[in-house]
Design a protein around this nucleic acid. Structure first.
Lengths: 110, 110
DNA sequence: TGATTATATAAGTAATTCATTATATAGTTA
DNA sequence: TAACTATATAATGAATTACTTATATAATCA
């Protein structure tokens, strides 16, 4: 039981950061590339990249490369104690809406 | 929406610690006083006290004073995005079992 | 090929956090 | 009252972490 609590605590450590939790909330809406995320959140590219690496290393995200873009998405196989949190995240539909108006990278090619 | 994510991140920060998550798992079984927790987990009294204060300040715990003991319990009115985590915590029944055999403080007086 | 764009990594720094040690408060008991 | 027990608070130090700046890798395009 200690092992499981340890794993849970480590996962929650990743979600206990406003920036990463925002990234997860965005990815709950749709798959996004790094530059989408930096544009929407207004953060530096290395910062986003480092957060994404942490989330992916822990198995929370999947990654798909296409050309020079790397698209990240929520891993549907993530632990239940992680996924239960996603259900409580506020909608980010309006935040990702601009992407469909082509402000940033070519979403229609996804 | 940023506000809610901020609040969620702060709550998860509290649960992103193995010690505090263990305390919460114990309290999910039953109300416990500080010395119960220190005995079961094997931690120092000030350490337990400080963790409990954090959890209580955030509204995750209730406190009930009786004599020189302070009994802590999970706050059933805590946010849903917090409570959903509790459902995934492993059982701690065997950990609290010794208390009912009177190893520590007088549970029968609770 | 060279220039541009997207992403990743590395190094450095400031801030936060967890646990310990020491001490204070407060209720109980002799 | 004095001694004891339970709990809380304060101060310190070690470790972790988040962000920035600088640089590296890699794909695309002219």
């Amino acid at each position: 039981m200690e092992q499981k609590i340890q794993e849970m605590a480590e996962a929650y450590k990743l979600l206990a950061d406003k920036t990463r939790l925002t990234i997860v909330a965005l990815l709950k809406e749709q798959e996004l590339c790094v530059c989408d995320i930096t544009d929407i959140i207004g953060m530096s590219q290395p910062n986003a990249s480092q957060h994404l690496r942490k989330l992916k290393s822990a198995g929370l995200l999947n990654e798909r490369k296409k050309g020079q873009w790397v698209y990240y998405s929520l891993n549907p196989a993530a632990e239940a104690y992680v996924q239960c949190i996603y259900e409580h995240l506020p909608s980010m539909k309006d935040k990702v809406a601009c992407l469909n108006n082509n402000c940033c990278s070519p979403q229609e090619e996804v």
